[in-house]
């Protein structure tokens, strides 16, 4: 019990004193996670819409792979990205291993299927009569898409929240492809693992507070955005 209490005090002290390293780690975490989720959103939503709205041969197979991807253990993604980025690997010449870009790549791999999967599920649920009604109202293709995105706003924001949650929580792949390099690829989750193995539980607890606060703020923003209209 004493340890938790001490950790709590230490956490508050570190946060209040504005420890520069912690500040950097937090910024890196935000930069990496938000970049990853932004890319996943930009790629994932259009793909999800395409898969959800259209029927084409092979759709079922694609959906099966997307669904498998939703449950893909991050370390598996980490392992394959590591091998891809090895100096001796196919993308070795890019020199991306042990950079934040590599972490972003891994996080995209684990969050993209979630966003594609949940978006396509939302679009598959749209009543085909609704699609026809929107067309009949005289909407151009682009306008149709905008209306549908608005109609599925709840589900799409839920998809982004789920993706972000996965990305923020992810540690195995970030450790593997990022290497937890101080002042470079160290993010909140990987430094927590390291601090625990160093025996610095107080620091780890402080980091956990920051991580939870971040997750809370971002999820809160997205959720209030999602629920904005529901008050009518």
């Amino acid at each position: 019990m004493g340890l938790i209490y001490e950790g709590f005090l230490k956490a508050i002290e570190m946060l209040l004193s504005g420890d520069r390293e912690i500040y950097e780690i937090t910024l890196t975490t935000l930069r990496v996670c938000l970049s990853a989720i932004l890319v996943s959103t930009i790629i994932g939503i259009p793909l999800g819409v395409l898969i959800g709205l259209h029927s084409f041969p092979g759709k079922k197979i694609i959906l099966i792979f997307v669904n498998i991807g939703m449950g893909l253990p991050p370390v598996v993604a980490g392992l394959y990205i590591t091998m891809l980025l090895w100096r001796s690997g196919p993308l070795g010449h890019l020199g991306l291993l042990y950079t934040t870009h590599a972490i972003i790549m891994a996080q995209i791999v684990v969050s993209l299927p979630i966003i594609i999967g949940l978006t396509s599920a939302a679009f598959q649920q749209i009543d085909s009569k609704m699609l026809m009604q929107i067309k009949a109202l005289g909407a151009t293709k682009l306008q149709r898409l905008v209306i549908l995105l608005k109609e599925t706003k709840l589900a799409i924001l839920a998809a982004i929240i789920a993706g972000l949650g996965r990305v923020l929580a992810e540690v195995g792949a970030a450790m593997m492809v990022g290497g937890n390099i101080r002042g470079d690829t160290r993010i909140l989750t990987t430094s927590m693992v390291m601090e625990v193995s160093k025996g610095n539980f107080d620091v780890a607890i402080a980091l956990s507070f920051i991580l939870m606060t971040l997750a809370f703020i971002i999820t809160f923003l997205l959720t209030s955005l999602q629920q904005r209209k529901r008050r009518v």
């Binding site: 100096r87 001796s88 042990y98 290497g179 390099i181 470079d184």
Partner: peptide, 21 residues
């Protein structure tokens, strides 16, 4: 020089050396 320190077990560290990683 920008040093990227990858802290792993000695076994893995040696394997990384062996592979030229």
């Amino acid at each position: 020089i920008n040093v990227k320190t990858i802290a792993v077990g000695t076994g893995q560290a040696l394997a990384m050396g062996e592979r030229g990683e």
